[in-house]
Simulated scan of single mutants.
Amino acid sequence: MRTIFWAGFAAFLADQLSKYLVVHTMELSRIRSIDVLPPLINFRYGENRGINFGLFGDGSDASRWILIGLACAICVGVLIWASRQTMSIWANISAGLLIGGALANVVDRLIYGYVLDFLNMSCCGINNPFVFNIADIFIFAGALGLIYFTGDTKKPAKATPKKAQKKGQ
């Protein structure tokens, strides 16, 4: 459980610090756009009132609280599930990343009423209009890690050799 806590804390802190530095210190909320390594990495200010890609983001206060409740329920569910399993360190880190990222977005919804997004990646002539944040990366990586690093860790049983046939049969 300590590994989950520290991985979650690191993910939470990295996300909140990155948002503070980029959105507030670099004043992205005022400037709206900073080209970092164009076209691959750019900072574009975004206010996400829904889930990924703004889905289900009608901007109502009710949907905000539903999304906060859903994120908290998922965090509690992952924590309970992880506490009942014998998991590898990588699975525990993955659970922590997912929980820390989700809670970082919950804090945004509590403070701002929406999730602050600022990362934009485009490539090869494709202009990607979507923005995301560090917490989204941790949520995705954590979920992928839980899929990859958990499951049946038992080795398959060895096949028993066939008994030697009796001579003459």
Rank of each mutant, 00 (worst) to 15 (best):
residue 24 H to N: 14
residue 24 H to K: 14
residue 25 T to G: 02
residue 26 M to V: 14
residue 26 M to E: 14
residue 28 L to V: 12
residue 28 L to R: 08
residue 29 S to P: 01
residue 32 R to G: 02
residue 33 S to W: 11
residue 33 S to R: 14
residue 34 I to S: 11
residue 34 I to T: 12
residue 35 D to R: 14
residue 35 D to A: 15
residue 35 D to I: 01
residue 36 V to A: 11
residue 36 V to W: 08
residue 38 P to I: 09
residue 38 P to L: 07
residue 40 L to K: 06
residue 43 F to L: 10
residue 43 F to V: 06
residue 44 R to S: 10
residue 44 R to F: 03
residue 45 Y to M: 10
residue 45 Y to E: 04
residue 46 G to I: 00
residue 47 E to N: 00
residue 47 E to Q: 12
residue 48 N to V: 06
residue 49 R to Y: 08
residue 50 G to K: 04
residue 50 G to Y: 06
residue 51 I to G: 13
residue 51 I to L: 13
residue 52 N to M: 14
residue 54 G to L: 04
residue 54 G to W: 02
residue 54 G to C: 07
residue 55 L to R: 09
residue 55 L to T: 10
residue 57 G to M: 03
residue 58 D to W: 00
residue 59 G to F: 07
residue 59 G to I: 08
residue 59 G to Q: 11
residue 61 D to H: 13
residue 62 A to P: 03
residue 67 L to N: 07
residue 70 L to E: 06
residue 70 L to P: 10
residue 71 A to V: 09
residue 72 C to R: 04
residue 72 C to D: 05
residue 72 C to N: 12
residue 73 A to I: 04
residue 73 A to Y: 01
residue 74 I to D: 05
residue 75 C to K: 08
residue 75 C to G: 11
residue 76 V to I: 15
residue 77 G to E: 08
residue 78 V to P: 01
residue 79 L to V: 04
residue 79 L to E: 01
residue 81 W to L: 06
residue 81 W to F: 06
residue 81 W to Q: 07
residue 81 W to Y: 11
residue 81 W to N: 10
residue 82 A to S: 15
residue 82 A to L: 13
residue 83 S to P: 10
residue 84 R to T: 12
residue 84 R to G: 15
residue 85 Q to L: 13
residue 88 S to I: 10
residue 89 I to L: 12
residue 89 I to V: 13
residue 90 W to Q: 02
residue 91 A to R: 02
residue 91 A to P: 03
residue 93 I to T: 08
residue 94 S to C: 02
residue 95 A to K: 05
residue 95 A to W: 01
residue 95 A to T: 03
residue 96 G to Y: 06
residue 97 L to H: 01
residue 98 L to G: 09
residue 99 I to K: 02
residue 99 I to V: 15
residue 99 I to L: 03
residue 100 G to S: 08
residue 100 G to D: 07
residue 100 G to H: 05
residue 102 A to L: 07
residue 102 A to P: 05
residue 103 L to K: 05
residue 103 L to A: 03
residue 103 L to Y: 01
residue 105 N to E: 01
residue 105 N to W: 00
residue 105 N to V: 01
residue 106 V to E: 01
residue 108 D to V: 06
residue 109 R to V: 00
residue 110 L to P: 02
residue 113 G to Q: 13
residue 114 Y to C: 07
residue 115 V to Q: 00
residue 117 D to K: 03
residue 118 F to R: 13
residue 119 L to Q: 04
residue 120 N to G: 04
residue 120 N to M: 03
residue 120 N to I: 00
residue 120 N to R: 12
residue 120 N to T: 04
residue 122 S to H: 03
residue 124 C to H: 10
residue 126 I to S: 08
residue 126 I to Q: 07
residue 128 N to M: 04
residue 130 F to K: 03
residue 130 F to D: 01
residue 131 V to D: 00
residue 132 F to L: 00
residue 133 N to R: 08
residue 134 I to E: 03
residue 134 I to P: 05
residue 134 I to W: 07
residue 135 A to P: 06
residue 135 A to E: 03
residue 135 A to F: 05
residue 135 A to S: 11
residue 135 A to N: 07
residue 136 D to T: 08
residue 136 D to K: 10
residue 137 I to T: 06
residue 137 I to M: 14
residue 137 I to C: 14
residue 138 F to A: 12
residue 140 F to H: 05
residue 141 A to L: 15
residue 143 A to F: 11
residue 146 L to S: 11
residue 147 I to N: 08
